[in-house]
Design a protein around this nucleic acid. Structure first.
Length: 1009
RNA sequence: GGGUGAUUAGCUCAGUUGGUAGAGCGCUUCCUUUACACGGAAGAUGUCGGGAGUUCGAGCCUCUCAUCACCCA
């Protein structure tokens, strides 16, 4: 059956993939040699909601190349697949679906909503795994893990409990990044800071009791530039709505302008006149004297910098907003709250965290307003009261008569400026710093082993620049907020219960019991309370309170669960929050292998080898896996981290739906086949390189596949037997020796490249070998032999060609698995599928024949030179011409004799004649060992030919100049290494010979002209 | 503001301990010669961002400036 004209990727690829799966080729340990070392790659689990985008395609292709290569080498390989439950992203998908039905999450109970997500997962989750098969990714699918699987859940809970018991995890009230859309805390890494157009308003905070002071400004030289009596301190802010929660005004301790009023009270210029709050003017290092007025309002509960200042000076932090970032509407009337706050500010009343948290400092008129509406309302109220800082603005206008007039107005001083605003990376809404109770990993306690892994070289990050970034981040690591106010995820295994003192439940406090199960928590509680209380097992039921908040739980317990004079009835209340998705994916390297159970896979495949992932999740995931692995397993999870950049379009822009520049890998697979896409990915993967993908490239590598295809089509055309086992032929023929040597060379290059993760070098070497060596030269050279009469040479060449083509298939397979498997399968009888074929180990030292190498390069050089001379002399491509040679030495003669058939065929030469002198009008071709010439009198343009030779001379002259300059420089000869000098001398001799030949040729032509 | 990286042919990019610049695509000319027009042959194109330094020698090392990108504040 004749081969098709090209490889039909569309129909053949899925069939080939099925064959691999049926053969179990991707299973852990497939093709492993007895006692082989393991080679493990953990797939960075895509979101369960995910679709295969071009970034996955790249990432997964690199892993597949490595795994296929190692598998063929006989390693015991595992490529562990799986999916991440992706808390927010997944909840969002299902909420969107409900929205289409006109429903929302709160229409369901927590259990029912989670059941909905599981339903969704069963139907639509993990589409990406099927898509992965399209690009040929060979993972052990039967082992596919999910971060919400039962076993994985056990692992997560166990780690939490262990870390809690070791004191690595704690609960605390901190300022967190709050996402008002999803109504949850998020980590620093989930916040994107984007520069946006903002405004800075300037307001006056009047001093208490009508106090005044001399406000003096001086320039750099200490010369007074402004002096006035003021009864206020000016504040600049981009967030006026948070003024309601101010606890102080801070100035720098060295700021002389405000020195007279430090320690005084000033008034927040907003809210009902009768209850204006007075706050202290304090000093702190934080304010920048040169920025704004130099005075900063301190709103500890709504700004990260202010939070630090407030903590330092024990300034109360009033939380102004609810979970949707609307102004709070709970608590006591403003009049009462303000009175309490004033007592605190006056130092007349002590306060604690819980008390401050309960206070609502939003005046009644703003309660319930959206934060941005509240901002407008506050600005308007202050401006109306005349407490905005004003300035004069002059503009020019034409009056009725067309004359230009200047109009000066006094208007509120509002600066328009770019501000960095935090946005949620998922929700795209403005993040609100919020003071809430959250769970934290005390990363400072577990970071050291992860740092040490890289410092000591146990774990290598590639490219090396990644290590610097890694150190910088980990050395300055912040506590990791791991609680999320979501439903989809691993619920925190902590149960709360009331604090009981003297037989009374204390409001605002709680006991915590951390345990793997509710039963264990109850048991712990029983032991803890002893006689003090009677702990009831709630059996998973949550306390019957609509709000489900801890505070209301304890209040309700206090009010309703007391039974006469007997022991207090205590029921446990489980924390509602779930864990950050990255907490569970941090356990991926061992959770997927069955930990905490002691499985054979865990023993065998952990720790793994290489992690290949995007640079963007170095902190999110890589660093956390390294910390968690050490904290839980006392081992590094892998020895190498390969980081790559984000995939961009051909122009280097980020791909986005709105830009419309998204390249869909599956569309590319449909159009050009998976191999073309994969080769493009491999070829692009230079360490640290920017990844720009274009369809043209993919097309180019599709053509490469066709070229390979046609090499086989050639072999078939010449009816070269293809038995299935092709042993390394014992070659006598120079040509065959040469290509065998080239094959060995490329094998070494490919292995060396893949060992060091230089996928691009491997791909390029294979491309150059297959196309540039095998197809361009070897196949052409073999034609005269295959068509010739020498039966033994023919047999040897046939065997060599088959062997070389097989080696090309083997070595190309990791990058282009489909077409190579297809071509492999065309042999009569193969013992293996290519996917489990043994990888070669032959070396250049064994197989390169230096003489054959030199001879074939000489032949190629001669053919190229003749072709070049012909083209420049406009000899018709089809015409056969005679060749003459002068002073051919023994080596040259032998090279010619061995290869005259090839040369004459490929250079279209009729005859070779030895001459004493070149005829007139002869084109000169200088070669090592003799000068060749094309007698083209009448055909060549003498002037043109002289110009051509002179151009060559010029190039040569440059080279000669450089070489002579170096060799004549005594410093070079004295200090350069011996081999460099020798090389230069040899080079010079060769060039000088060539120069002499060219000079002679030009002289001859000049006679003619 | 801090950090990291980039700047090499028209485009996209390689260039591994410093030894005198490469690939793919594109472009120009010629060729349908029985593996392949998703092809073959030939060809053109570089002050390696600017400047300075170290060195016998710098695309590569050092400093500096410029521009761009990304990350973190």
């Amino acid at each position: 059956m004749a081969m098709e004209k090209t490889f039909d990727a569309g129909t053949r690829e899925p069939l080939i993939y099925t064959k691999w799966e049926e053969a179990g080729a991707f299973k852990a340990g497939a093709n492993a040699k007895a006692g082989a070392e393991t080679f493990t790659i953990m797939l960075p689990p895509p979101n369960v909601t995910g679709f295969l985008h071009v970034g996955h395609a790249f990432n997964h292709t690199l892993m597949d190349i490595l795994i296929r290569w190692k598998r063929m080498q006989g390693f015991d390989t595992l490529w562990q697949p799986g999916l991440d439950h992706a808390g927010i992203a997944t909840q969002l998908v299902v909420e969107k679906q409900l929205a289409e039905l006109g429903q929302k999450r709160s229409d369901y109970s927590r259990e029912d909503f989670i059941a909905k997500i599981w339903e969704w997962k069963a139907v639509s989750g993990g589409t990406i795994q099927e898509q992965d098969k399209r690009i040929g990714a060979g993972m052990d699918w039967d082992r596919s893990a999910f971060t919400m699987d039962e076993n994985f859940h056990d692992a997560v809970i166990k780690v939490f409990v262990d870390m809690y018991n070791k004191g690595f995890i704690y609960r605390g009230k901190r300022l967190v990044n709050w996402d008002p859309h999803f109504e949850t805390a998020i980590s620093d890494l989930e916040v994107e800071n984007i520069e946006t157009d903002g405004h800075m308003w300037h307001f006056k905070y009047p001093l208490a009791n009508g106090a005044t002071y001399e406000y003096v400004e001086k320039d750099e030289d200490g010369v007074e530039t402004l002096r006035e009596t003021r009864n206020y301190i000016a504040i600049a802010t981009t967030r006026p709505e948070t003024m309601l929660g101010d606890g102080a005004v801070a100035v720098h301790p060295t700021d002389e302008r405000y020195a007279p009023i430090v320690g005084m009270l000033c008034e927040i210029p907003v809210g009902p006149k009768a209850q204006r709050r007075l706050i202290p003017i304090i000093t702190d290092e934080y304010p920048d004297k040169t920025f704004g007025s130099g005075a900063v309002k301190i709103t500890g509960a709504h700004d990260f910098n202010d939070y630090q200042v407030a903590k330092r000076s024990n300034i109360p932090m009033y939380n102004l907003m609810d979970t949707k970032a609307a102004m709070r509407a709970d608590g006591r009337p403003y009049v009462e709250e303000a009175a309490t706050a004033q007592a605190i500010a006056n130092g007349e009343q002590t306060f604690d965290e819980a008390m401050i948290a309960a206070m609502n400092m939003v005046p009644d008129e703003y309660r319930g307003m959206d934060r941005f509406d509240a901002r407008k309302a506050v600005i308007d109220a202050i401006t109306a009261e005349g407490l905005a800082v004003m300035h004069d603005v002059t503009r020019t206008e034409k009056d009725e008569d067309g004359n230009t007039v200047e109009i000066t107005e006094t208007v509120p001083y509002v600066e328009s400026k770019k501000i960095m605003q935090p946005f949620g990376d998922r929700s795209k809404v403005v993040i609100e710093p919020m003071l809430t109770d959250q769970w934290y990993v005390d990363t400072a306690q577990i970071v050291e082993p992860a740092l040490d892994a890289v410092r000591s070289g146990r774990t290598k990050i590639m490219p090396e620049s990644g290590e610097k970034v890694y150190f910088h981040w980990l050395e300055n690591i912040e506590p990791w907020c791991i609680s999320r106010q979501l439903w989809w995820g691993h619920q925190i295994p902590v149960w709360y219960a009331p604090v009981i003192e003297d037989g009374v439940i204390i409001t605002g406090k709680y006991e915590m019991f951390c345990a793997a199960t509710e039963e264990e928590a109850v048991e712990k509680a029983r032991i803890f309370y002893g006689e003090k209380a009677n702990v009831i097992n709630g059996q998973g039921k949550r306390f019957e309170d609509q709000e489900h908040t801890l505070a209301s739980f304890i209040d309700a317990l206090k009010n309703s669960m007391r039974h006469g004079d007997g022991p207090i009835q205590v029921r446990l209340y489980r924390d509602d929050d779930v864990l950050d998705t990255w907490f569970s994916s941090g356990l991926w390297p061992f959770g997927t292998l069955g930990w905490p159970n002691d499985t054979p896979e865990l023993a065998k495949y952990f720790p793994g080898d290489v992690l290949i992932t995007g640079q963007d999740i170095l902190f999110f995931w890589v660093a956390r896996m390294m910390m968690m692995s050490q904290a839980v397993m006392d081992k590094d999870p892998f020895h190498t981290v390969y980081l790559h950049q984000l995939m961009r379009d051909a122009k280097g822009e980020k791909m986005s739906k709105t830009r419309g520049n998204v390249i869909d890998p599956l569309v590319m697979v449909d159009e050009y086949g998976a191999d073309a896409l994969r080769f493009t990915m491999g070829q692009m993967a230079a360490l640290g390189g920017v990844l720009k993908i274009s369809e043209d490239r993919i097309k180019g590598y599709r053509n490469f596949g066709t070229k390979l295809w046609n090499a086989f089509s050639f072999a078939e055309h010449y009816e070269i037997p293809n038995a299935g086992t092709h042993a390394l032929p014992k070659a006598e023929n120079t040509l065959n020796k040469w290509i065998i040597g080239e094959t060995a060379k490329v094998r070494e290059v490919v292995d060396a490249a893949l060992e060091t993760y230089r996928f691009n070098d491997a791909a390029n070497a294979l491309y150059a070998f297959t196309w540039g060596k095998v197809c361009d030269w070897y196949v052409e050279f073999s034609k005269p032999i295959l068509q010739g009469e020498d039966a033994s040479a023919k047999l040897e060449t046939e065997a060599t060609l088959r062997w070389v083509l097989d080696q090309a298939l083997i070595m190309l397979h990791p990058i282009m698995p489909f077409i190579t498997e297809e071509l492999w399968g065309q042999a009569d009888n193969r013992a293996n599928l290519l996917v489990t074929q043994e990888w070669p180990t032959f070396t250049a030292a064994d197989l390169v024949d230096a003489d054959a190498d030199r001879e074939m390069n000489w032949v190629i050089n001669l053919i190229e030179s003749v072709r070049s001379a012909r083209a420049q002399s406009h000899v018709p491509a089809g015409a056969k011409v005679p060749l003459v040679v002068m002073g051919l030495d023994a080596k040259g003669q032998s090279a010619w004799d061995n290869n005259s058939a090839l040369i004459m065929r490929l250079a279209r030469i009729e005859t070779l004649e030895h001459v004493e002198a070149f005829p007139k009008g002869c084109v000169t071709i200088p070669m090592e060992g003799g000068t060749f010439g094309l007698p083209l009198e009448g055909l060549i343009d003498v002037k043109e030919e002289i110009a051509r030779l002179e151009k060559t001379m010029q190039k040569l002259g440059k080279e000669l100049g450089g070489l002579r300059g170096r060799l004549n420089n005594p410093n070079f000869v004295a200090s350069a290494p011996e081999e460099v000098i020798t090389e230069a001398r040899e080079n010079l001799a060769l060039r000088e010979e060539e120069e002499a030949q060219l000079k002679a040729a030009i002289a001859r032509l000049a006679e003619l002209g």
